[in-house]
């Protein structure tokens, strides 16, 4: 069975001699979640924007349900992209309810669908509040609701937990897990909180420009992370001594498309 999304050898450069992504490959099955982690400037948001169709000129192949597509997913797939919440301009006096309804351009949303989404996202009690009166966590839930009202098959979330405390992060990621079940969609999310991503996502893509590693989260360990991040991590929840310092075949990192073992 074809995966929902398959990306092969994806490369992208803002400047010709400085690739931000080099030969990135990964895949995502239906109703699964992929967490993209990596250091700042590692190309996580760039990858998400390429998938969303916001950046053009990437090399490599993107397959949606086995069909090769050109450009981003916005033209070929039922995909919804949720940017970082700092990107949302809340100056207009628009209520939570209206904002979610406006998420479904160009068609109109039925009252029933709207009420269901409000209830599922826990927004019914604040539906008449203005967007500018919301807390960071509430705004992020509204953004998520605005995306799922379109019934997407894939949700792209750019740092959804940014600015939230650890409880807020947990609540939001629990909600995202619930969204996957309730709306039968897949999720790709970018996040800096490694522990939260490992806890809540099915698969991991650890990305640092030309280095990347991708597999099920059970396969992820500190050696891989240290290698991709190029630094030592002390306080992460992942298992450490699975490999005795020697990585099995599927744990290899890819650098410029060539496999290599870590020292």
């Amino acid at each position: 069975m074809n995966p929902l999304l398959k990306v092969e050898q994806l490369s992208y450069s803002y400047l010709p001699e400085e690739p931000i992504l080099s030969k990135i490959s990964f895949e995502l099955s239906s109703q699964k979640s992929l967490g993209i982690i990596g250091p700042n400037g590692g190309g996580k948001s760039t990858l998400l924007k390429i998938l969303a169709g916001l950046l053009e000129g990437a090399q490599g192949e993107i397959y949606w349900k086995g069909q090769r597509i050109s450009g981003g997913l916005n033209e070929s797939a039922r995909m919804a992209y949720v940017p970082q919440k700092d990107n949302v301009n809340s100056a207009l006096p628009i209520t939570v309810r209206d904002m979610i309804a406006f998420g479904c351009l160009p068609s109109k949303v039925s009252k029933k669908d709207l009420n269901n989404v409000l209830a599922q996202m826990g927004l019914t009690s604040i539906q008449k509040k203005l967007i500018r009166e919301l807390s960071g966590g509430q705004l992020q839930r509204v953004q998520l609701a605005k995306a799922v009202i379109r019934k997407p098959e894939l949700l792209l979330l750019d740092e959804p937990t940014k600015g939230l405390d650890s409880t807020g992060q947990d609540q939001l990621l629990d909600l995202i897990e619930q969204v996957i079940k309730d709306f039968n969609c897949s999720v790709i999310l970018v996040d800096h909180n490694i522990n939260q991503v490992i806890k809540h996502c099915d698969q991991i893509l650890c990305l640092n420009r030309t280095h990347h590693w991708h597999d099920k989260k059970e396969m992820f360990n500190k050696d891989i992370m240290n290698s991709v991040y190029h630094c030592e991590f002390e306080h992460t929840l992942i298992h450490e001594n699975q490999t005795d310092g020697k990585l099995p075949e599927h744990h290899k990192c890819t650098v410029h498309g060539d496999d290599h073992d870590h020292d």
């Binding site: 969303a52 169709g53 981003g72 916005n74 949720v82 940017p83 809340s90 160009p106």
Partner: peptide, 11 residues
């Protein structure tokens, strides 16, 4: 006004 990138994705 609210989100130019989301508008772009929605065509």
């Amino acid at each position: 006004i609210q989100d130019e990138e989301a508008a772009l994705i929605q065509g």
